[in-house]
Every structure is written in C-alpha cells, then in structure tokens.
Design a protein around this nucleic acid. Structure first.
Lengths: 234, 234
DNA sequence: CGATTCCTTGAGTCCGTTCAAAGCCCGTGG
DNA sequence: CCACGGGCTTTGAACGGACTCAAGGAATCG
C-alpha cells in the first residue's frame, strides 16, 4: 500500500485517506446509490452545482466543459473508464459534466464522515487521478496554445488511441465532431477539414461510419512536432 | 486539521500525509538544503529531469513551461508565493521550471521516508494546490481554446491582479511580453497590440515602465464575456 | 551616454472562421 | 424493401483576426 502511493510520488500516509465509501455492489443501491447510469447526452452535474459528490467512470465516456455567456464552449477533458472527475477545490462544481455515450458511474460522497472501510485504494486513485489530470491539462494547453489544426487532430487521435489502449489500427471515436471541435479549440468545419487532410495524406482512413477512424500510421501521427523532454525520440 | 482538509473536499485522513519534511529554518541548510534561491531567468528543473523534489514559492515568480522540438513554447502557469509546483505523477518532470524574477523556494523531497515531523499542514497544502492547479488549468484552457486576443489579455490582467491580491489599481507584471505571449497562446506582437487596444479603450493605463499596468476599470475587464456557473453576475 | 534589449507599430499574408449549401448515414414509416 | 426525413458531416467561397516580417521607439544597464 505504501509503495503504491509512493509510486505516484506522494506520502504513503495518504493511503489512510478513506472518507469515501468503497462501493460494494456492482449495481445501484438504495440509499443515494453508489452507482448511477446516465443516458447519452444527459447532464451529470452543472457548473455551479454544489459539489457534494465526485465520480469514477465505470463504462462509457463523460465530458466536462465550461461555457461562456455567449455560448462558446470548451471541453476540458473526456473521461474514460477508470477516470475520476468532479473533484473540486471549492464547494461548487466549476464545470458541466455530461455523458457522451451512456455511462455507468461510481458515485462518491465528499463529506468528511464515512471514513471507515476504505483501505486506501481509493485515496491513492484520487491522488493519482489529480496528478494525471494536471498532466493531461498541461499537454492540452500546449495543444490549444501552440498547435495547428492538423497537429491538434493528429495529437488528439494518438492520445485518444493510447488512452483507450487501442491495440489495432481501427478506433471508435465516441464523440461528435462538434465535441472534438470544442475540445480542440476549433470549429466543426476545421475539424472536418483537418481530418480529411490527414486522410488524403494517408495517415488515417475514414470508414463510412464517421465515428470510426483507422490509424494507418501512428508513428507519423505522433511525430508531428515532437515534445522535448522525457520521452524525446530523436 | 480535519476541518481544513475537509474544506478542500478531501478526506481528513489525508492530513496524515507527512513524508515531506517541514522546513525549519528560513535560510538555506547544509544537507540538500530546504531552501533555494534562484536568480531571475535561471532554470529550476528541466523537462525530463528526475522528479525527486517539488517546490513551494516563498518569494518571486516562477514559470513552468513545455517546448516543442521546433521551439514553440507554452507556459502553463506562473507560480506566485505560496504556490506549489513540480509535483509529478511519474518519475520525471514533464515541464521546465524557471525563475521569472529572482525566487526563493522551499524544496521538498518526494521520497517515502522522512515521514516524521509534519503535522499535516503540508499535506493539506499539497492537495489544495493540486486542485487549485487543475481549476486554473481549466480556466486557462477556456482562454486558450475560445477567447480572442483582447479577451485573453483582459482575463489575464484580472486573474493576475486577483492572485497577487492587488488592492489598488496599479499592478506590476513581473514577466516579459514574450512570457505573456507564450502563456496566452499569442505572439508578442499580438500581446502588445491587445494591451494597447485596452489602453485606448480606457480600461487600463500604461505607465512609462512597461512592467506596470494600471487597471482603470476592473469590472469592465472582468466582464468581457462572462463565465456561466457559480459566480454568474447578471 | 551609448548600446542592448524589450516593446510597439506597420504592412501584407495566411490559417482558421464564417456563412452557405450539399452530401451522407441512419432511423422511421410506408 | 425502399422512400423519406433529419441530423451530422463534409465541402466551398469569402472574410477576418492573428501571424509574419520588418522597422522604429523607448527604457534599462553598463
């Protein structure tokens, strides 16, 4: 247990965190329910809601986003199975969360009581999730601030394929082009054009079903303009 | 102690974290040193370095950034006194950290030993810092993905004035225009033009010393295109 | 007081947007 | 089984905001 926490670089004692009940049954329970199933496109919580709970994705895909008063939208992240979202520093949520596909969620209460039970697994997950989220946010800020439309699509496809542990070349994109656009800081039209361009270049193939993509050359997609640092591949 | 942690919405038991020594003396110590002073523009750590330590800003300003192989740079955050930076999910740093101004830092070892001593204050700070960092990252992604140059500058000035708890209207910007550009996803020229535009509009004033700004109308600066959600001001 | 560096300004270009329309899936119902 | 309808996606043409390239100005430092 200690080693696990140490692995994410934080004190082993963190493992004592509990306070959030460990789910027991795989299906929804009476009292409040530890699980929740949300239909595609339904809201999970809204910006401004009291942040009394947070969630872990069991299956499906969730998006968290912010809106400006004039309707502009920024999807800050897509959450895949295993990901934790909805944790806030303050008392209220600061993003909207919606199901992209039908999603099964594990719900955790944020309140201080109910410490008992947990063996620290969840605590470790939470910390790891926060750090991972920050890391993804940093990468995404680089994408939003400095990459071209073509690079954004290429990076997105590669990143998503890695996150879904997609082994082959075919991959399903659960979200619409509009969602991709609002995640990548582009318009739908630009997304479409960039995707088409990658297809013409032979890096990807686009089956009739537009939610599918075939990554024909992952290496080329990944090596658009490489990052410096750790995994620098020269 | 428990209440403090609960305030950030995480289990009180987190407070038991320690593992990172609490600094004792306000000046540099022999063994490894708990404090470190870095001259302006000097590197603190680089992308790819082993992430054996993390830091808290005592005074001065620090920037963390990523680079692409072709030189494009994205500053993901400026860290002000009290902020914690350099915590990583993995074994290596994934950003570069440099001092913007001369900076005094508190250095914490990440290793699992040395649990003793801390009363949980640091643990709470770490968690709060991670959540705060994530929140700022979300806001910044909205800025990078969806806001115009003028809006980016306005948002940046307001956000920075709030973070520095700048009470009056005059504010010092410790970073160069280039740093602002690389933080806001713009070019230096665009930053300069947008700043000039805000001045012409009377929202700000620009003293001869270009590192200074006078926020003549914070309300107008803040209300560019307002966020929805929690603090919605209609 | 000169030199360097940073910041600003100008002119022209380009990428992504906007506006508009057509194409394609897919579900529905005849 | 196929025609129809609606939403999503793609494509086209023109526009515009930020970028690039290039110079000029201002402040700071030696």
């Amino acid at each position: 247990m200690q080693t696990a926490l140490a692995a994410v670089g934080l004190p082993p004692a963190l493992a004592t965190i509990p306070q959030c009940r460990t789910p027991s049954s795989p299906v929804a329970e009476a009292k409040g329910g530890f699980r929740r199933t949300v239909p595609a496109e339904d809201e999970i919580f809204a910006d401004g809601d009291r942040a009394g709970t947070f969630y872990k994705v069991v299956s499906g895909v969730v998006r968290t986003c912010k809106l400006l008063s004039d309707g502009r939208r920024q999807i800050d992240a897509f959450h895949l199975p295993g990901d934790i979202f909805g944790l806030e520093a303050g008392a209220e949520h600061r993003v909207n969360a919606e199901a992209v596909t039908e999603a099964r969620l594990e719900v955790y209460r944020r309140e201080p009581r109910a410490l008992a039970g947990d063996d620290g697994t969840l605590a470790r997950e939470i910390v790891a999730s926060m750090l991972k989220g920050l890391e993804r946010a940093q990468d995404h800020m680089m994408l939003l601030g400095r990459k071209s439309a073509r690079e954004r699509i290429a990076t997105f496809l590669i990143t998503f394929s890695r996150r879904t542990a997609c082994t082959g070349t075919a991959m399903e994109l659960p979200m619409s082009r509009t969602d991709m656009a609002d995640h990548l800081g582009l318009t739908v039209e630009s997304v479409s054009r960039a995707v088409t361009q990658l297809e013409r270049e032979g890096l990807i193939a686009l089956p009739p079903n537009r939610r599918m993509v075939v990554l024909r050359d992952k290496a080329a997609l990944a090596r658009s303009p490489s990052d410096f640092g750790s995994r620098l591949v020269l």
